[in-house]
Design a protein around this nucleic acid. Structure first.
Length: 288
DNA sequence: AAGACGAAAGTGGTTGA
DNA sequence: TCAACAACTTTCGTCTT
């Protein structure tokens, strides 16, 4: 019922673009997505924010020249190569760097498992650095903070994932992640726009294979609902699900409540309740 | 037979003392 | 820190298509 894994395509750079392509795919799109996702997820060299030292640590040039460009004397070369080797070891064995390595490995693991875009991993890594700088990880597990960073990064990039979706793939329990996230939100992230209902729409439209018109309409419905104060205290994803349901009906592309509910990670009942409210308050839209 | 609907009891998260 | 509370879920029976 709460199936977490779902082939889904997101542009690995910006988080959005590829979605459009998916709309045109035939029945095979799911497999195509998965395949492409895996292929892309493993491609390319690791990007800088995910390296413990951001790629900015001291490097000793491999050319045996000194500052003035003259070649070094033969006696000095072995010494230099020893230095190089030592420098390499030291640069990752400093305690804080080791911490980063564990954290970043965890971040990459979760991101890969959930099929999230690379930008998320980078954002999460940046957040993790900031958290570490403020000593927020003291007394907390690295894993929970890493997961919290991913959760935050997802929200910042408008790719909403539930806390439970992430905790499902994390090596820390939901409660701990929640705590870490709160701390993170308070101390590091200055402004996190609370996730809006419209953020959930593209993903739903996608997995349900609905058309772009439905998406537009659903978003319009949500805007209306928002301006009518129908949204306070309600789960954004619940509202999103109901709006998509309504939009699909209006566009003659009806999906069952069950389909929508399971894809939005809410229950049918919630979809129904939101749907009912929408019908009560938004009648004038239907008339038009 | 499957989807939609709603009531009742249960659950987790927020709020206020 | 604890209890009250609202929103949401689960479960299940009934109605509609």
């Amino acid at each position: 019922m709460k199936d977490v894994e779902r082939g889904e395509i997101i542009c690995l750079n910006c988080g959005w673009v590829v979605v459009d392509h998916v709309m045109d795919q035939g029945p095979e799109w799911r497999a195509f997505n998965e395949e492409q996702r895996l292929r892309r997820a493993r491609a390319g060299s690791p990007l800088s924010p995910l390296k413990p030292n951001k790629g900015l640590s001291t490097m000793i040039d491999w050319r045996n020249k000194d500052v003035s460009g003259k070649f070094l004397s033969p006696e000095k070369r072995p010494q230099l190569s020893r230095l190089r080797r030592l420098n390499k070891i030291i640069s990752v064995s400093e305690p804080s760097e080791k911490n980063y390595m564990i954290a970043f490995a965890e971040i990459e693991r979760i991101v890969a498992q959930l099929g999230l875009p690379r930008a998320i991993a980078e954002e999460a890594a940046i957040l993790y650095r900031k958290a570490a700088k403020k000593r927020l990880i003291k007394g907390r597990s690295i894993e929970s903070m890493a997961a919290a960073c991913i959760y935050a990064a997802c929200r910042m990039h408008k790719i909403p994932r539930g806390l439970d979706e992430i905790s499902g793939s994390a090596r820390a329990d939901r409660r701990e992640i929640g705590r870490s996230y709160r701390l993170l939100a308070k101390e590091v992230i200055l402004k996190v726009p609370p996730s809006k209902a419209t953020d959930y729409v593209p993903r739903l439209i996608n997995t349900l294979r609905l058309s772009a018109e439905v998406e537009q309409l659903a978003i319009r419905i949500i805007r209306e609902a928002y301006s009518l104060r129908l949204t306070s205290g309600r789960m954004p994803k619940g509202l999103a699900a109901a709006a998509v349901y309504l939009a699909a009906i209006l566009m003659n592309q009806k999906r069952t409540q069950r389909e929508i509910a399971s894809n939005a990670n809410v229950t049918e009942v919630t979809v129904r309740n939101r749907f009912k409210e929408l019908m009560e308050k938004l009648q004038f839209i239907v008339v038009v």
